[in-house]
């Protein structure tokens, strides 16, 4: 029988548990005092720990940013499949833009520059809708429609 599985004797796992428990249960102040007594540069240790943790936050954010950029690059380089059909009449196109503005902050920012949506020419409405389609502003609606059709 290997020593690690002998139930009658302490094994290394139990030794480790005994040792680690004393650190887990210790107050931070006791550990600080012990480190100082051992001649350690506790301010240096604290600064290193904080830097390591803050670096980890930064690297996490950068990783997320890189992932978002990569996703955007893939999305923008792939030929877009038109997931939404341009409405047939000027009135329907205007209504589509107005509906989108109430639903999506990105669209609202674009339409906010017009005092009144009825002042926009149909060409501008059509152009805005095409840009928004390219940006995927209507993809969610198309997906919902597709889900509903399943």
């Amino acid at each position: 029988m290997s020593a690690d599985t002998n139930p009658d004797k302490m094994d290394l796992g139990e030794l480790f548990r005994n040792l680690s428990k004393a650190v887990e249960q210790a107050s931070p102040e006791d550990l600080l005092a012990e480190s100082k007594a051992a001649g350690q540069n506790t301010e240096g240790i604290a600064a290193e720990v904080k830097n390591t943790l803050l670096d980890a936050v930064q690297s996490f954010e950068q990783r997320k940013l890189h992932a978002a950029r990569a996703k955007y690059r893939i999305r923008s380089s792939a030929p877009r499949t038109r997931s939404f059909v341009m409405p047939a009449t000027p009135a329907e196109r205007l209504r589509m833009l107005a509906d989108a503005a109430t639903r999506d902050q990105r669209v609202a920012k674009i339409t906010a520059k017009f005092r009144n949506l009825t002042e926009i020419s149909d060409d501008d409405v059509r152009s805005a809708l095409e840009d928004l389609m390219e940006l995927g502003a209507f993809d969610d609606i198309a997906e919902q429609d597709n889900d509903g059709n399943d």
Binding site: S27, P28, L31, L32
Partner: peptide, 18 residues
């Protein structure tokens, strides 16, 4: 992280080292 005391940072280091 910014509000960790020196004592808390030392404890974290000790836990991670262990």
């Amino acid at each position: 992280i910014a509000s960790l005391t020196d004592a808390e940072s030392v404890k974290l280091k000790r836990l991670a080292e262990g």
